[in-house]
Amino acid sequence: MNQKASYFTLGFLIGGLCATLALSCWIHSGGNSHRKVLKLAHGLETTHPVHVGMEFMKKRLEELSGGKLSVDIYSGGALGSEIKCLEQLKNGSLDMTKASCAQIGTFVPQMHALCMPYVFRDSGHYWRVLDSDLGRNFLGFMRMDGLMGLCFYDAGARCFYTSKKQIHSPEDLRGMKIRVMNSRADMDMISAFGASPTPISAGETYTALAQGIVDGAENNLPTYYTSAHFEVAKNCTIDEHTSIPDVLIIGERSWNSLSENERKMLAQAADESSRFQRELWREKTGEAKKALLGKGVNFIEVDKSEFRKVAESIYRHYDGTDIGGLIKKIRGIE
């Protein structure tokens, strides 16, 4: 009798545990047992316009799928650097990420063409290129490396900012140590200006500036503000040397696991988020500049043609190459 009672009790406990686990899974899925959730990681703060764009994409995907397809977003480098996240996409341990074309170029060299200094004439030309068939070709290049480019996000124009010495002309950069992304195009540009390119991860840049490991860095205004780099580097030169797009990417393994209809919904949500985010970027760039002025940042307006002339020397390295051909196509778009 006691043994039967023990079996009954054990069975009751196991049954209760299974019911609890099932309920937990049901709640996590929003009560929909067929809900599919993609995992997306990136290194930006949640206030950044690109993160907000991805949140919009998530919302639209849930609306289009009736809640059956969603995205969990891990921000602030919680799952590693951009390079680490790209590697995770390739091995299938992560579904999606956001990465700069400069970092994607580590795996897909053609993307370096989008990272060249002053390759875009202005913001209008930037989006005419990215929205064109050529822009779609750039997203397609990633297929060769197990990645799928879904859309471009605006990452603005990048400017130099320094902790001590102000930059009024290219000559002022000579001898300075400037933090850059680990990108050949970026390092070539800094070297052309006579400075020393110093690759440092985004998460370590604040400390590097504060401790004098580097004299300055370069980025767009919203990132300069949200990363609080202005606290340790208050001189910002508006030279707008590069406009390097961000890309929303899904791993090819994850893409292949989706049904045809799920792929269409994800592609539509991504496209809509790109158009939402580029409008938001313009708004947030103005807000960031106003906030930075309030924080005591010294904005330095310069003759960009002087910087453009120096940077032009970099293009000779790409003559006769595939990247050189892509640069000509970019510049050929009216």
Rank of each mutant, 00 (worst) to 15 (best):
P49I: 01
H48V: 07
K284S: 14
A269P: 01
V297T: 07
N137R: 15
Y315L: 12
L21E: 14
G294W: 07
Q268F: 01
N2K: 13
W127I: 02
R253K: 14
V310Y: 03
T198R: 00
C236W: 04
A217Q: 03
G216C: 11
A99L: 00
S93A: 13
H125R: 06
I73V: 15
I213Y: 06
D303F: 05
A78L: 11
G175S: 02
H317V: 08
S196P: 00
S313H: 03
G320C: 11
S33C: 03
A99V: 03
R174Y: 00
G324W: 10
Q88N: 14
S259K: 04
E240N: 11
V108E: 01
A99K: 00
D145G: 10
G43H: 05
E63F: 12
L150C: 00
L266H: 06
V52R: 13
A208W: 08
P49K: 07
C25I: 09
H51K: 09
T205L: 02
S273M: 02
S259H: 04
R184T: 08
N235H: 13
D154E: 14
I250Q: 00
K329V: 02
A99G: 07
G30I: 05
M148Y: 14
R143N: 15
K39H: 08
G296W: 00
S33Y: 04
L326Y: 13
V37W: 05
G286P: 10
